[in-house]
């Protein structure tokens, strides 16, 4: 059983924003909605790192936990999707999400939120696959075409990897072994866990 994951290799991301553009183009998202963005840490300082971030499709998804209408669901593949017909635009998922994934097209008066929009892992939504409604609401359903998210597939440096967790981690493991460094990857460990013990030891040495 596939478990879909994104993984961004900070050693490789060159901040070209190709993934951001590809995503906008593929799904024709409304103006002001950014399903994916590239953040550069320590910009302009030696050791700067860029990370492409979108919905991380969490196993214990905060958005899902706080949604007052319970409009989120996990697919078989662990992709977090939501039903826009149910969404009331309250903004709770936006408060809860650590990655700033939920987006709102601000169409209403006083910045009133519309229906939430977020990265779907190119898996569409609850509408019938490849239907016009599905495309309008959620964008293209590439997963149902046997393809992977456009952002990862078109990444020029292959910094952003997406797909079955086993495959992705295998690719990354081989890569990290080959180059012998830079296993500090934008993935679940960074996002959720503390740094591994080995790294923390190094940090202490660096400080003393």
């Amino acid at each position: 059983m596939a478990r879909m994951k994104f993984l961004c290799d900070s050693e490789r991301c060159i901040e070209c924003n190709g993934c951001v553009t590809a995503c906008k183009n593929e799904h024709e998202v409304p103006w002001g909605v950014n399903r994916r963005r590239v953040v550069t840490l320590s910009d302009g300082v030696p050791g700067e790192k860029s990370i492409s971030v979108a919905c991380m499709h969490c196993s214990d998804a905060p958005c899902m936990a706080v949604c007052p209408v319970d409009c989120f669901y996990h697919t078989d593949q662990g992709v977090v999707l939501h039903d826009k017909d149910m969404c009331i635009g309250c903004g709770y998922c936006f408060y809860a999400c650590p990655f700033g994934a939920p987006q709102y097209p601000q169409t209403g008066t006083f910045g009133m939120r519309g229906k939430m929009d977020k990265c779907t892992f190119c898996a569409g939504g609850p509408e019938i696959d490849h239907s016009e409604e599905e495309f309008k609401k959620y964008g293209r359903n590439r997963l149902a075409e046997g393809k992977l998210p456009i952002c990862a597939e078109m990444c020029s440096t292959k910094a952003l990897l997406g797909g079955d967790g086993d495959v992705v981690s295998e690719i990354f493991r081989e890569r990290a072994l080959k180059r012998g460094k830079g296993a500090d990857v934008w993935g679940w460990g960074t996002a959720y866990g503390s740094a591994p013990a080995q790294q923390q030891d190094k940090a202490k040495e660096g400080k003393s």
Binding site: G47, G182, A183, D184, T190, K202, A203
Partner: peptide, 13 residues
């Protein structure tokens, strides 16, 4: 000499 794993950077993130 920067460690391969830039812990400080990720902690700051």
């Amino acid at each position: 000499p920067a460690a391969h794993n830039n812990v400080k950077l990720w902690q700051d993130a």
